[in-house]
């Protein structure tokens, strides 16, 4: 399957979606000019991946900032993963937050309440 590798900028996140090497990660800052257009290829990729996923998918979110427009798209990603989980695939979300960033920690907790997937909160030092 095609590998998605997007290098982050000061307003768009780094994204790696690599089925063969089992890397699924979004990190950095997310406030793209056009959120829908930015995340569309990611959501399409996940649709294709969901047809024949790995035995286990560990998806990492390691964001330091995202705006409210991005928050909806992040939920869309999580909902696709939730669907995979519902279909009997093993999925784990790892939500990384800087240890002093309560807002980012809370954002993870909220997503965990909305979607029904195994969710792990991981704090790290920036």
């Amino acid at each position: 399957m095609e590998v998605i590798k997007i290098k982050g900028t000061d307003d768009t996140p780094s994204i790696v979606l690599d089925k063969d090497n089992e890397i699924f990660e979004i990190s950095g800052r997310s406030l793209p000019e056009d959120v829908t257009a930015f995340y569309e290829p990611i959501l399409n990729w996940l649709d294709e991946y969901a047809e024949n996923p790995n035995d286990k998918t560990v998806f990492s979110f390691k964001l330091v900032y995202f705006n409210t427009a991005s928050s909806k798209l992040l939920l869309d990603i999580l909902m696709k993963l939730e669907e995979m989980h519902e279909n009997g695939n093993e999925v784990l979300i790892k939500w990384y937050y800087p240890e002093d960033d309560e807002d980012m920690q809370e954002a993870g907790e909220e997503y965990a309440e909305i979607v029904d997937i195994p969710f792990e909160q991981v704090s790290y030092v920036l």
Binding site: V35, T36, T68, A69, K72, L75
Partner: peptide, 16 residues
């Protein structure tokens, strides 16, 4: 609001 997806083509002001 996030779940209901009321992010129109303009992106909802409510969330902001």
């Amino acid at each position: 609001q996030m779940k209901e997806g009321r992010v129109t083509d303009k992106g909802g002001a409510g969330l902001g």
